[in-house]
């Protein structure tokens, strides 16, 4: 029985035997157990197929799976509104990555500043706390008036979505460094620079990575909204324009594409996390 379950991917006797039965989080993220993934994904796909075959739902509200597939093939080969599908995805991806990158570039140093300098903390804390709970979408009207409808406005919105998350993640990561480690480094005659880069940064990295992953999710949410405003191309624009023509199949296609791309990015980030910070959770 155990072997069959192993083969189907519901259990993985090899990794499970090595540890306690409950409470060791590293087992949960270890390979194996993919059977459950297929079960949940498969359930929804089969439900959708059944709903399509038996026409349970009016296609205006949720399209049949075949229609979405047809739209995918059509848009992939013919494009949508003068842009190919890859251009739409590429442009959204570019906006997300640019906003994310600039957000990290500003947010991570800001986070360290907040954690490590009293003056900086007092200077920037009110600003960060004021902007942090503010949804970037609420700022769209202002951003259009200031920066117009071009790329810079969209990237600025994504930057706003990313920067505060990164600042806070970095700060909490830096604060989590055990003071005993810093004392130890000082006794070994480390200077300030070494303390920052050799002690605090490695300790903060796991939290920074978590922040980055949260950030990516928020950025994808924001890019769709940013593209609702006068975008020539992009997955968000695809969804918005299709909704005006009640083409729910294209709307759903756009949603699935965003989900797949965002998931792919998350997989890459998890891989990088495992490669770059193998010490996570083992301090």
């Amino acid at each position: 029985m155990r072997k069959i379950l192993d083969k189907l991917g519901f259990t993985n006797t090899n990794t499970e035997r090595k540890t306690v039965t409950f409470g060791d989080a590293s087992v949960v993220s270890a390979p194996g157990g993919r059977g459950w993934t297929w079960l949940s994904v498969g359930f929804f796909i089969i439900l959708w197929c059944l709903a399509s075959i038996f026409e349970w739902i009016n296609p205006i509200f949720w399209p049949p799976i075949g229609a979405v597939w047809e739209q995918f093939v059509f848009i992939f080969t013919e494009g949508y509104r003068n842009f190919t599908l890859l251009e739409h995805i590429g442009l959204s991806l570019y906006r997300v990555l640019m906003g994310f990158f600039i957000g990290c570039l500003v947010g991570i140093p800001l986070g360290f500043a907040l954690a490590l300098s009293r003056v900086m903390n007092r200077l920037f804390d009110p600003i960060v706390e004021f902007f942090r709970p503010m949804p970037p979408l609420a700022l769209i009207p202002l951003v259009i008036l200031w920066l117009g409808i071009g790329e810079s406005a969209k990237i600025f919105l994504l930057f706003l979505a990313a920067v505060w998350i990164m600042a806070l993640a970095t700060r909490s990561g830096a604060l989590a460094t055990k003071i005993s480690k810093i004392h130890a480094a000082y006794t070994l005659n480390a200077n300030k620079k070494q303390i920052l880069f050799r002690v605090i940064l490695p300790n903060a990295l796991p939290e920074i990575f978590t922040g980055m992953r949260v950030c990516m999710g928020v950025c994808w949410g924001t890019v769709v909204a940013a593209e609702l405003v006068a975008a020539e191309a992009g997955v968000g624009m695809m969804i918005m324009v299709a909704s005006k023509f009640l083409s729910t199949d294209i709307v759903v296609l756009g949603i699935i594409l965003i989900g797949v791309v965002a998931y792919a990015i998350d997989v890459v980030m998890r891989y990088l996390e495992a490669k770059l910070i193998p010490w996570r959770g083992k301090s």
Binding site: P141, I144, L145, G148, I149, G150, V229, A230, A231, E232, M237, M240, V241, K244
Partner: peptide, 16 residues
């Protein structure tokens, strides 16, 4: 560029 009624007027006002 698909935009809402109000955004279209902002874009024109800015000369975009």
């Amino acid at each position: 560029l698909p935009s809402s009624n109000a955004d279209a007027s902002s874009a024109l006002a800015r000369g975009d």
